[in-house]
């Protein structure tokens, strides 16, 4: 999407309409509905700025999740005009007709309005794939660290950039059908440890964690995850990498 192109088109200070899903499951009187908010757009406005604007000026009861507002913490994933995205990195100028519909990210426990619970699922996923280094070696922290080839460290870093925003899950058809499917976030996590020289796990070990339909064999290769990943992680090639390894496990 060419941002500059859109910026040229917009008239400064136009009115935009945000149509936002409202519902508080803990409040018996609350019913799911959409609410429209009209605000004046400012240059460089992101959905973070727009939503804070609505909260502080128009509706003090609107719930949503932001933390870093800089695209690095993964808190603010939501469905923007039908696509799962990080709200803080979405510019309102991108929407030429000035109409933006916001829904909470699916596949996670809904808390209220645009607020969801990602922590519970992500922590359980991390435990399920044993998202940590497995090594029998006792590191003596007073001694020189183990040398690692620079290129290998860079490759691990590349996969370590995942921010657990949940967008890959919200983009995944398998996940919609199978609640326990690990999704790209979980599968690529195993790839991250499989290529880390500190981790001594074998393919057999990983098979125990992901060798079923909730794991590597559940992926239908529809690529929704990779299309929407805000960190541009090579999700599909790494899922394929793990699948090739797992298929070979006897």
């Amino acid at each position: 999407m060419n941002r500059q192109h859109h910026q040229d088109e917009i008239i400064e200070g136009r009115e935009i309409t945000l149509t936002i899903f409202r519902y508080d499951p803990n409040n018996k009187e609350s019913k799911p509905h959409y609410q429209d908010y009209k605000i004046a757009e400012t240059p460089g406005m992101t959905l973070y700025i727009a939503l804070i604007n609505i909260l502080t000026r128009i509706d003090h009861d609107l719930s949503f999740d932001f933390v870093c507002r800089a695209g690095i913490c993964g808190s603010c994933a939501m469905v923007v005009n039908g696509k799962p995205r990080l709200a803080c990195k979405t510019l309102t100028s991108e929407f030429t007709d000035g109409k933006i519909t916001l829904l909470p990210l699916p596949t996670f426990q809904h808390i209220k309005d645009l607020s969801i619970d990602t922590g519970t699922w992500m922590n359980a996923m991390s435990v399920k794939v044993e998202s940590w280094i497995h090594s029998k070696e006792q590191v003596d922290i007073s001694k020189l660290e183990k040398p690692i080839e620079p290129e290998v460290a860079d490759e691990v870093f590349e996969l370590d950039r995942c921010i657990e925003c949940g967008i890959c899950l919200a983009s995944c058809s398998t996940r919609v059908m199978r609640e326990d499917f690990l999704g790209a976030v979980g599968l690529v996590r195993t790839a991250r440890f499989a290529i880390d020289p500190h981790d001594e796990r074998t393919d057999d070990d990983f098979y125990e964690l992901i060798g079923d339909d909730d794991g590597i064999f559940g992926c239908m290769s529809l690529l929704g995850c990779e299309d929407h990943c805000p960190k541009d992680l090579p999700l599909q090639t790494k899922i394929a990498y793990m699948r090739r390894k797992m298929v070979e496990v006897k």
Binding site: W132, I133, I141, S142, A153, D154
Partner: peptide
């Protein structure tokens, strides 16, 4: 601090390495 960083390296932090 040097101990902390070496502990973290053992826990898999992919520190940029020297070539």
């Amino acid at each position: 601090a040097p101990k902390a960083i070496r502990e973290l390296a053992g826990w898999g932090v992919p520190w940029s390495r020297i070539g």
